[in-house]
Amino acid sequence: MSDAAYGPAMNRVDTQPEAVPEPDATATSSAPPATRRARAIRTAGLWLAPVMIGLLALLFFFYYRGLQADGNSTVISALDWGDKLLPQTIRIVYIAFWSTVIVILVAVPLGIVLTRPAVRRISPFVLAVANSGQALPAYGLLVIFLGIMGQGRFTVIVALSLYALLPVLRNTMVGLDGVDRSVIEAGRGMGMTKMQALTRIELPLAVPIVIAGVRTALTLNIGMATLAFLIGGGGLGITIQTGLKLNQDPILIVGAWLVALVALSFDWLGAVAERVLKPRGL
């Protein structure tokens, strides 16, 4: 053993040359190949998805034009663009959008509060309630709210907000809990207030997981918005239902196709948001 391990302060200070890179300095500067490949695939997916969606939309356009050329009057009137399809599409987007906004406005602050040490003890109960919201069949939830609030799109929005609360709430809590304690400790130790530690460290670091939850909620909500017609909320569900009732497959297909296009577009937007809002450096 060299004497350096035990040397006292005064004769140790000048024994090492400065600015020699540590032996492991270069090893960590680039990510391992597997991670890099996964990232490349995700990036490609981000660009490929809109192309695929555009392709599907184009196919839809030709199919729709073909139906009109066929001249089946039942089909044409059920699939009127300006009167039926466009407003119905807007309606489900409207329902999904606002229910998701409400989910974010409720679940994220709730998740923040429930991860604070003072109220941590009650978080299992709140999670249980949120869980039961999702455990209920969606249809049942809509009917319950129909009984409470009557018909209409606002009833749907409220019901869907409860239904999709869980993924965002859970992800917010998991995301905040997952922040490395030592990072918070370092921040607090440097004199950050609890609020500063929350807004400057915990929330930015939890963002990717919270957004993943929001994406799940958004997808759930678009699917569920199709059921809005059941309690008078309108939407593309009407067209699908019409197709089923009249036993006209083209009507059914057009309705379902549009729902799929909306769902895919929104999921893509979610993916883009995930990418853009993720803090650099993670």
Binding site: D180, S182, V183, I184, E185, A186, G187, R188, G189, M190, G191, M192, T193, R200, I201, P204, L205, P279, R280, G281, L282
Partner: peptide
């Protein structure tokens, strides 16, 4: 909090903020 701003603090886990340069 004001007190801690006057005192440097280094911990074993380092705790650098990964999302900041």
């Amino acid at each position: 909090d004001k007190l801690r701003r006057r005192i440097g603090y280094v911990i074993q886990q380092i705790g650098l903020f990964p999302h900041q340069t």
